[in-house]
Design a protein around this nucleic acid. Structure first.
Lengths: 243, 243
DNA sequence: ACGATCTGCTGAGGCAGATCAGCATGTGCC
DNA sequence: GGCACATGCTGATCTGCCTCAGCAGATCGT
């Protein structure tokens, strides 16, 4: 894969039209390539001076633990996503990162990142944009947990995942492969696994969507969008804003 | 107030040690000073090409509306906070901004912002840091709504507000002035106003904290921190990370 | 070939928090 | 002064979701 074609470069190019030199600076940012097994945390809360990562393949989730023993999954990351930016900027990690599947990722050293920002300012802007896009997703997630009931929330979640995967060609309007268990869905949506199970069956019985055997199959996209009050405008726009 | 002493400059200086030249670039970023009345939205969802703002005085809240009529307040902003960064980067606003009190804010034009980033790269990094800090707060808020019950959530919320206000000298360990109504608290915490009222009374009866007459009075800080499982480390650290 | 473990699935019962309704105060406006 | 309207407060009732418990099928290590 040439530097221009990595999922990460593709994502940034959607906001900032990157020059050849900027693309190669981006490429040099990729440090050692590492592999991680599913289920074993890559980073956990409180660790200091951890590297960041650019995700090449596989899925991971970011979560926080509470003293009571519960956990809340804040977000899932898919190929092309940047992991642990906050851990680098704040020097200490404020959340855990767990691979959902087997994962390959390139390390990004804090010093390299800051150097690159000062030498290639447009890359800093591009990363700021990517971070803002992630924040928009977290905000949408927050709204869902705060004000949508379990069914709407689940529908919204499945639609959002589909929209994100589409950007990296891992989804079609008919569905997508999804390695998440119902337990993980529950931890992400602030529900119990039992209730997630019931909600998924309801959605299936309603003929809207099926979540089974590692696959999400969308039967009625319009119905799902209506139920979830889904607005995908926050995930895409046409062409770079900064030429 | 000299450029170095604006709340915004103070906040950024906590991460990036800013030179005189960078500080004056920051100062030039402040455009027209505008005033807004309480309750009248400054920005709403879907508007395009809105300016961003740097908040000089007063409180505002960012919220999203759902088709069902409910609303979720994502965050409150206090003096020194940057408003509408995402609206600028994405060109269209993905949320509403409503002044809670009478507000004064400086406009920031999108073109000025992007120019400043490319000419003064360290400011881009500083703003990236500020955005990440905001994201950390949204994440904490998400965890609260997803996994804390109403009482813990309320306690956590009041503590976080106190910690943020302390950074701009608007709070002490004993309490702070707070212009929020119980309805706003409810919209922020994903509860009904009725239930917020009951929870506030419980916290008062427990001798932990009083929320009344526009003031928050903390009676038992330790008890509150324990109840809320509050960790303020994500809000502060000692000295700039980038010299 | 065996238990151990994980994931999906379902029923019964309980509780946190929503909804609906009503009352009391305070404050800006005509 | 009187009205409209926002805000705080409380009781009664209803419900969405949790918890506990148990079963079935897959996958795994030995």
């Amino acid at each position: 894969m040439t530097p221009q074609q990595t999922p990460f470069a593709l994502k940034l190019s959607a906001f900032v039209a990157l020059s050849g030199e900027e693309l190669s600076a981006l490429d040099r940012l990729h440090g050692r390539r590492k592999k991680f097994a599913a289920g074993r945390d890559m980073v956990h809360q409180g660790q200091i001076n951890q590297p960041a990562y650019i995700l090449a393949s596989g899925w991971v989730c970011s979560y926080k633990l509470l003293s009571g023993g519960g956990r809340q999954i804040v977000d899932f990351q898919i190929p092309g996503d940047f992991l642990g930016l906050r851990s680098v900027l704040f020097r200490t990690a404020d959340h855990n990162i767990e691979p959902v599947t087997r994962v390959e990722a390139s390390e990004v050293l804090p010093s390299d990142l800051l150097d690159t920002f000062s030498r290639t300012p447009r890359l800093a802007t591009a990363v700021l944009w990517a971070a803002s896009r992630d924040e928009a997703m977290v905000v949408e997630h927050l709204v869902g947990i705060g004000r949508r009931d379990a069914k709407e929330r689940t529908a919204h979640f499945l639609l959002e995942l589909g929209a994100r995967l589409k950007l990296v060609q891992l989804s079609t309007p008919l569905g997508y492969a999804c390695p998440l268990s119902q337990y993980m869905l529950a931890d992400a949506m602030g529900l119990s696994a039992v209730h997630v199970n019931r909600v998924l069956r309801e959605l299936r019985d309603d003929g809207l969507v099926t979540f089974q055997h590692g696959k999400v199959t969308i039967h009625d996209l319009d119905g799902l969008v209506t139920l979830a009050d889904f607005d995908k405008s926050y995930l895409d726009h046409d062409g770079p804003l900064l030429k």
